[in-house]
Structure formats: C-alpha cells, structure tokens
Design a protein around this nucleic acid. Structure first.
Lengths: 193, 193
DNA sequence: AGGATTATATAGTGCTCGCTATAGAAGGCG
DNA sequence: CGCCTTCTATAGCGAGCACTATATAATCCT
C-alpha cells in the first residue's frame, strides 16, 4: 500500500538485548536504544509501544534462545546429568564472548522497581518458573528411583538455581569460564549419590 | 560558635541504608533520601557532599556492621567451621527481618553504571577483598593440614562467595531463612572432608 | 543585648528521562 | 502522473533527576 517498513525488528531486538544485558534496564535509555538501532523515537514507539514493551520482547527472546539452551539439560536421562548439564551450560552462557557477561535476567532483576510496571514481576515469575520446571524434573527422578528417597527435590532445585545466580554475578564481575567450571565441579560434589 | 547541627548523621545513614538496600542505588533519589531523613537538600549536600558520597559512607557502615558479622567466621578454628559459619551468617543476614531482604551490596551492584563514579568500582573491590580474605584464610588452613593437599583455596573461596551471592538474590526474591539453610547444608556437602 | 557565624528553608538551575504532536518524505495504486 | 496511505524525522512535551544560589532563622561569644 505504502512505504515499506525499513526497521528490522529482529535485529533491533538483538541490539536491545545487548544493551540491556550490558547496562541493565534502567541505565539503558530510549535514546540509547534508538541511537543503537539507527531509528528515531517515533519509529521506536510505533514498533514497540514502550520501553517496557520492548524489554518484555527482549526477555521473551532471551528466554527462547539463551535460557532454553540451559534448560535442555532437563532432557538428560539422569538427575545427575540434569544437574551437571544445567550448571555447565549456565557457566557457558554467562561467559559467552558473543554477549555481555552474566545473565540478562539477573543483571536486570535488581535494577527494576518493585511496584511500577510488570517487569520485576515478569523476571520473578521467570525465575520461579525455571525452578519449578527443574523441581518437577527432579521429582520425576525421585519417583523413578533416580534420586535417594531422602532427597528433597525442592531443596536441590533451589540449590542449583542459587549456584547459577551466583555464577551469573561472578561472571558479570569478570570471572572466567574455567573459574566458573571450578565452581560447577565443586557444587556437583554436593549432589546426592 | 553558632547554631548547632540538628541532623543526626548516624540516623541519617541508617535511613539511607534502608532505602538503598530496598530500592537499589539508582532508584533511590536524593528527594527520597531527604524526605526520609526529614531534612532539605542543602543540609543533605552540606553533610554528604553528593549522593555518591553518601552511598560510600553507607557502604562503609554496612561493611563494618553487617558484613563483619559474616566475616567473623574467619576466626573459626577449622576451615570447615569457617565455611559453615560464613554461609549460615550470610543466610541470617539476608533474611534478617530488621532490614530489607538480600544484600545491600549485591542489590546495588548491578544497578550502578560501569564508567561514571567510583561506586561500581568500590563494590567490585569490596567483593574482591572479601574473597581474598577468605582465600587467605583457607590457604592458612591448607598449610596447617586443615584442608586436603589437593584442595584449591581459590576455588573453594570462589564457591562459597558464589553460593553467598546466589542466596542474596534468592532472599531478595522472597526465600525464607529455612530455605536458605537448606541451600547452606547442601553446599556444605561439597566441602572437602 | 549585639553581631558574627552557621545551619536551615525556598526556590530554581540545567539536564535527561520516557514519550508524543505535528509535519514531511517515500512508495503502491489509479 | 496524482493521490492516498504509511512510515519517518524534527522538535518539544511535562516530569523527575542531582544539585545549588540566595535568603532566612537560630545559636554562641563578647
């Protein structure tokens, strides 16, 4: 009908992902985003409605592409394998030179307000959902005799997530992949036999 | 010589600590601070010079009062005791109902810029210093035969700090003290015998 | 009390924030 | 082409930010 759209949404989301990842949600301004995307504010708001709206899309994209990489671990046949692969893939993700260090969700989690906007809630829901999936998988394992009878899936899942978040912070502070691997190996020593 | 100061610096720092702890550095405005302190901006700047200056004092105070509580663990006679007490005290601190949940330093770490101001650098230095102290203590232990010869103090220290940071995030997300205790117990299972 | 001194309060600085009203440029269809 | 639709650019909105210049009030020393 008319002038074709020139903005590449996919690429714009990639750019935004990098900025949010590196600087957090609040420290990334719309001006930064539009400048990096090479567009002007009206185009930005036509495409994404709001900064919040863009961030939610970035988060969704991050969840689908990066975190799913770690959550493939849930398909491992043994509970031990699940724990191992999940931690190693987290360590890989948080130290992937193709992206800023650390975890996008963790890096932004603390930098968002508690009351306004759906962002903090979304991040919290995301963390809870990940732990629930892991917990469910470990419950299956326990039912199948793949974990000792005294193992508490909820506790084990929380432990793994805690180590993962800690590694995300460590990576963002500059820790190298091998150092995270050391932490992973150490943490796995706590896994029930 | 003249009108005596009415502002209670100690109390003002306490108030600021709570605000920074709960909302992070960036989301706490000078207006929020002055309102909570019951003073006006000029008094604020007379007393603290800048928002950064206040934050550094808050951080110093936090380090001396709260974190020293966790670092008393370094005085434990055995390496195992050091690890145990440190993790438990972190869990206690992060779930102390007298303060907002989580760790002030962690809550603010990600919400600060990387280039401007000395804040991020200060937080990073603080984390590094804590790990170094712990690492040195574990090296002593190893030299004294209190840790196996194949133990790597640097790796163990990093592991403990990682679990601590993860717990800080978990607590800030609403985890209860007993749940953190579960994580601590699990983490301690990874400790070399 | 007088007057120097110092903390306070009012009001406002320039800046950046997220966001948008208005107007102009670019292409498909008759 | 001429026109209409759709995207884009310029410019600026009000609000909030960290911070401060000016003026006022309160105290101690003489």
């Amino acid at each position: 009908m008319a002038r074709p759209r020139v903005l590449d949404i996919e690429k714009a989301i990639d750019v935004a992902t990098t900025l949010f990842w590196r600087n957090g949600y609040e420290r990334t301004s719309v001006a930064d985003l539009t400048k990096a995307m090479g567009i002007t504010p009206p185009s930005f708001y036509f495409a994404f409605n709001s900064k919040d709206g863009l961030f939610l899309r970035v988060l969704e994209h991050y969840l689908e592409t990066r975190l799913s990489y770690a959550e493939e671990a849930l398909n491992e046949p043994t509970a031990r394998g699940v724990a191992e692969l999940m931690l190693y893939r987290m360590a890989d993700l948080y130290t992937d030179a193709a992206h800023p260090p650390g975890c996008l969700a963790v890096n932004c989690a603390l930098a968002c307000a508690d009351d306004p906007g759906p962002i903090r809630g979304e991040l919290s829901k995301l963390r809870e959902a990940r732990r629930m999936r892991l917990c469910n998988r470990l419950q299956e394992a326990k039912a199948a005799g793949d974990l000792p009878p005294d193992a508490v899936p909820e506790e084990l899942a929380r432990f793994l997530m805690t180590v993962g978040w800690g590694m995300a912070l460590d990576a963002q502070s500059g820790a190298k992949r091998e150092q995270l691997y050391g932490t992973v190996e150490r943490a796995l020593k706590a896994w029930p036999s």
